[in-house]
Design a protein around this nucleic acid. Structure first.
Lengths: 149, 149
DNA sequence: CAGTATCCTACGTGATACTG
DNA sequence: CAGTATCACGTAGGATACTG
């Protein structure tokens, strides 16, 4: 009768969904990845209700994805990604790449990710073999590990 | 007053969420990636209500992620991934990797992805520069493209 | 500015019964 | 087996007013 929770599932994907699977969470993280730090900025950019944003940020803090701190001037609060949060970048980028390819804007790419130092676009997110060859979906197989049921 | 829809957002990430952002969708896709093909299998493995599963599969077909076909014997229906669906694999794998690392099962890795031909584990999903160097989140920058607002 | 506190409602979900 | 139909429910989401 209650909504099924992701938490008790012994599945790495479900565990990730327990953290970022809510409707707004990934969009909030996107904005934080893009440099937004403040509550009001996030709220305006996203058009999200304040109570929802507050709840999601609280949840992200409890999950260790985001940290709250004072700004340098001490004038306001800032939300920044923790190391665990930063490691969500491959997830965000893989989803962004897929959307840009399969649900494109007719005017072209909406966003390009470049390497900060060289200015060159990064490589498209993809599955890669141990020695660096790109693999297609069918060339990959999943086998249960010690933590499987 | 209505739930905010992802569709009108000019954002590649939001577009992807419009396709796979529902609570059950990614878990269904996971099972299909893992080789499940039939309605009853999916329903039992996931513990999902039949009407929900039917609705999600229908949606996935409309979005061009999954196709329905007859089994070879003709005895039952099968759901298989389209090319666009197969290209979601990086998303699934990135999420699985994150969950396995940051929400681990104490007994060890829940699943390992190996290259079918060599049997060797694939490389961990990560952001990579044009010439193949792994990049950390902070070394990547997003710049607006022609499809940006 | 950065939230809480309330209240309301629509929607996603879940259970079950039924059908070709 | 592979769904459809119906109904009942909880909760996520939304709007708004208020607070330190």
């Amino acid at each position: 009768m209650k909504y099924t929770s992701y938490k008790p599932m012994n599945c790495s994907l479900a565990q990730t969904l327990a953290v970022i699977g809510d409707r707004w969470t990934l969009l909030i993280l996107r904005d934080i990845f893009f440099g937004q730090k403040r509550f009001a900025q996030l709220q305006r950019n996203l058009g999200i209700a304040k109570n929802i944003l507050a709840a999601r940020l609280k949840q992200l803090m409890e999950e260790g994805i985001v940290e709250k701190r004072e700004s340098e001037s001490g004038a306001h609060a800032e939300y920044v990604l923790t190391p665990a949060g930063l490691e969500l970048q491959p997830v965000l980028l893989a989803m962004t790449h897929w959307g840009d390819k399969h649900r494109p804007n007719p005017k072209g790419e909406r966003v390009t990710f470049i390497e900060r130092e060289t200015g060159k676009p990064i490589r498209r997110m993809g599955v890669v073999s141990e020695d660096g060859r790109p693999l297609r979906a069918r060339e990959v197989r999943a086998i249960p590990g010690p933590g499987a049921d």
